[in-house]
Design a protein around this nucleic acid. Sequence first.
DNA 1: ATCTTTAATCGTACATTCACGATATACGAT
DNA 2: ATCGTATATCGTGAATGTACGATTAAAGAT
Lengths: 94, 94
Amino acid sequence: MAEFAKALAHPARIAILEILAESDMCICGDITEQLPLAQSTVSQHLKALKSAGIITGNIDGVKTCYCLNEESIDELRSMMGSLLNKLGESSAYC
Amino acid sequence: MAEFAKALAHPARIAILEILAESDMCICGDITEQLPLAQSTVSQHLKALKSAGIITGNIDGVKTCYCLNEESIDELRSMMGSLLNKLGESSAYC
DNA sequence: ATCTTTAATCGTACATTCACGATATACGAT
DNA sequence: ATCGTATATCGTGAATGTACGATTAAAGAT
């Protein structure tokens, strides 16, 4: 869980996920064009997302095609859901 | 969003939230006793959670009473929900 | 008034993250 | 075979995060 959260813990990475979600096709490194960051920096963030399992990257010729990994997003959804459930049941009040 | 995620991005902080959720009363610094961390470290994590708004801290005599902040947890739930929705709608496949 | 307990803060050390430019690699086109 | 493009990786520096022990501050108990 903390691992997932870590992956989401940077605005650039959230932006990348939103870009991937919005483009129906899995676009490649023109992600960089949509962000105010250097190519190497974007590549780093992509790597972080990939090693958290949230996205996949397929090399396609000279380009690389990144996609959301629905499986792992489902897992995130379920983990986050159960955490938030737990937290929501609290009857404490101060 | 990234701010919230950052707050969740460490196992100790998740553990603290779960402890706060489970103890009906808002317990104080005996959170430390339930974690394998020094008091100062726990205090640091509490500070992080507090400045993210996820918990509140009330000084009560010599102790301090920490609680989940349901309002902000609701906000987190809704932000996370809409992010995950966006990500879930993606039709990309690679 | 002094002592004890609780918790915050300080100072420090080390690890990790973030951003960049430069370089390397690998593919496709000429 | 060479060139250009796309992307990953390297090396670096600055900033941030994590953990600890020591210190401080404030309240309650003696």
